[in-house]
């Protein structure tokens, strides 16, 4: 048997088409060939490809980790990211992997208020709401959407420090448009799902109690004092 040749097993108690050797009774790895059946050229090509891929996995979180804000990453990381961008985008590799980092912070929810044209009473609820959204993964999808809406937020007016900078104002305008687009899409979705005449949504920040608040003041995790409406 060649070093990289097939290994014969007997399956289902039937006799194998090949004579079973003593070595085949050992675990498969023990008899795995050491050599590679691929040619040097093939290995060289694959080596280049895997290097490109590993770089594509590494560069996005590296760029993110070196970033102090949009477009403010390390001058070493930015050009690398630019080169790898098509590959990274295509394979959905553009992640920072900053789970619960740098600190586990507050959550961002959405308060929905509904008014109906008929006799139904007005409604108000928070998204995500575990009692309405099941299974848990489905709930989590809604949770991520309210977090995304928050992450896209841009104030309704440009910050005073950028009004003299046309490029910065344009970036603010684009960010604000994107936020409003998503907020209005949410409103339209809720309206279609509930049949409400009027829908209002408000971003809500829900922070955790500090250890002192929890231990000394008896503030629970869902105490109303921990919720704060955020501006639109």
């Amino acid at each position: 048997m060649r070093a990289d040749g097939p290994i014969t097993f007997s399956m289902n108690g039937k006799r194998s088409t090949k004579k079973r050797s003593d070595r085949s009774r050992q675990p498969a790895s023990a008899q795995s060939p050491q050599g590679c059946p691929w040619s040097i050229r093939r290995r060289a090509i694959v080596s280049v490809l895997v290097s490109i891929h590993v770089a594509a996995v590494f560069i996005p979180p590296f760029t993110f980790a070196t970033s102090r804000g949009p477009g403010e990453a390390s001058p070493f990381a930015v050009p690398l990211m630019r080169v790898w961008q098509p590959y990274v985008d295509t394979l959905f590799l553009n992640h920072g992997y900053f789970f619960f980092s740098p600190n586990p912070g507050p959550n961002h929810l959405l308060r929905v208020e509904l008014r109906f044209g008929d006799d139904r009473p007005a409604e108000s609820y928070l998204i995500p709401d575990r009692s309405r959204l099941w299974p848990r993964l489905y709930y989590h999808r809604h949770f991520m959407m309210t977090e995304t809406l928050h992450s896209l937020y841009a104030p309704p007016e440009p910050p005073p420090e950028i009004v003299e900078d046309p490029a910065a104002v344009q970036r603010w305008r684009q960010a604000r448009d994107r936020y409003e687009w998503m907020r209005d899409s949410f409103v339209r979705h809720i309206q279609a799902e509930t049949g409400a005449d009027r829908v209002w949504v408000t971003r809500v920040e829900h922070r955790q109690p500090t250890p002192y608040e929890f231990l000394e003041e008896g503030i629970g995790l869902t105490d109303p004092r921990l919720y704060r409406d955020l501006p639109d």
């Binding site: 789970f99 619960f100 980092s101």
Partner: peptide, 27 residues
């Protein structure tokens, strides 16, 4: 690696209270 680097940038992961803020997260 980057999960760890990200945490290493946070004060709560150094002062030992990060787990509390994860545990006290009702959502």
């Amino acid at each position: 690696l980057f999960g760890g680097i990200g945490k290493a940038r946070g004060e709560l992961w150094w002062d030992g209270f990060a787990l509390w803020y994860a545990a006290a997260n009702s959502e």
